[in-house]
């Protein structure tokens, strides 16, 4: 089995799904030449009517996929940076997310909005945001956040086959640096099924996307101190596999949540609320969050690194719960 990067795995998923279903097409800015390599080679293979480069017009992209889905297509839109989606929020939030419900159930809207979040490439504040909580707040959207190349492929295929608008979030650092075994077979990864990436009995660490790697690194350090952490990757936050999380917390009695989004009203707040509601009596310590401080992401490398959770911070948060 080949070891692939996340961007290679995503590329494989797109190629397979476009080959499998003529209704699937891609649309976005610079996707022919592919800034981060995800769509590389697909224009040559499928041509300009299946890989459609657009003007720098996020409203047009976001609305066009909705219109195309309305007439039976299964489009995949790319927003190069998640921050650019802010230019298209009406089409995503007021239109795509709500149409099915508003129309009394008639619309079937298989749309994938691919986008890229996370910090770590010195892109500064307007190209560095993790806004999954914004979209998770809106009924009608599904939110997918893979943390491995294997999951990236399987979840993207599931997203393309899903009959709903899906926000598919990719992490800009993981494109090249996260590599694992990816079969070239036609497999999918289901929505709403968390992955237990490491088992442990002392504390549950829930990480989103690249923060799963940080959580695993922290777990290694903690193991040297005799603390066995269980690391959970929800993989999709809408739908959320709450059962796996609650089961783990009932076993470990402690939980730390790690994400790259700002702490205030981040998805960690929802997770804390759900855990407190469903496992209050099992908790031996208050749930803890390790998240970006409530600050725009700075440009300077040192400052940017300070604004992202580190394994040391996660380990420290766990130690705080063990006392």
């Amino acid at each position: 089995m080949a070891v692939l990067s996340v961007s290679q795995a995503l590329n494989m998923a797109l190629r397979e799904e476009m080959g499998r279903d003529d209704r699937v097409f891609m649309i976005g800015e610079d996707i022919k030449d592919s800034t981060y390599g995800v769509t590389r080679g697909l224009w040559d293979e499928f041509g300009p009517k299946r890989v459609i480069g657009t003007p720098i017009s996020e409203i047009a992209i976001a609305g066009a996929v909705l219109g195309a889905a309305s007439v039976g297509m299964r489009p995949v839109a790319e927003f190069m940076y998640m921050t650019f989606m802010m230019c298209a929020m009406d089409q995503v939030v007021n239109q795509a997310a709500k149409s099915k419900y508003m129309f009394g159930g008639k619309a079937v809207l298989p749309i994938v909005y691919r986008t890229m979040a996370g910090a770590g490439r010195a892109n500064a504040a307007q190209h560095t945001q993790s806004l999954e909580a914004w979209f998770a707040h809106v009924p009608g959207l599904k939110i997918v956040m893979p943390s491995t190349a294997y999951d990236a492929k399987g979840l993207l295929k599931t997203s393309i086959r899903d009959d709903n608008p899906v926000i598919f979030i990719e992490n800009k650092v993981q494109y090249a640096t996260t590599k694992d075994e990816v079969p070239d077979t036609d497999y999918t990864v289901p929505f709403g099924v968390a992955s237990v990436r490491r088992t442990g009995k002392d504390v549950t660490i829930i990480g989103l996307q690249r923060m799963v790697e940080i959580a695993l690194e922290a777990a290694d350090h903690l193991a040297e101190e005799g603390i066995e952490a269980e690391v959970i990757d929800p993989r999709t936050i809408v739908p959320l596999d709450l059962d796996t999380i609650i089961k783990s917390v009932k076993k470990t009695h402690r939980v730390v949540i790690v994400h790259e989004a700002h702490e205030r009203v981040g998805f960690g707040a929802e997770l804390v609320a759900q855990i407190v509601q469903h496992a209050f009596d099992y908790l031996d310590a208050p749930p803890a969050r390790v998240a970006n401080p409530n600050v725009p992401t700075p440009f300077n490398r040192i400052l940017e690194n300070l604004s992202i959770p580190s394994a040391a911070q996660v380990a420290q948060a766990v130690r705080g719960l063990m006392r």
């Binding site: 003529d22 209704r23 097409f25 649309i27 009517k49 299946r50 459609i52 409203i59 047009a60 976001a62 609305g63 066009a64 996929v65 909705l66 219109g67 195309a68 889905a69 309305s70 007439v71 039976g72 297509m73 489009p75 009406d90 089409q91 007021n94 239109q95 149409s99 508003m102 129309f103 619309a107």
Partner: peptide, 23 residues
């Protein structure tokens, strides 16, 4: 669809036309 957001139908109908164009 009728639409409560002014102008929102413009990209949407463009997208329907895009679907016709692709197929």
């Amino acid at each position: 669809g009728a639409n409560g957001i002014v102008g929102a139908g413009i990209p949407i109908s463009t997208g329907a036309a895009l679907g016709f164009w692709v197929t």
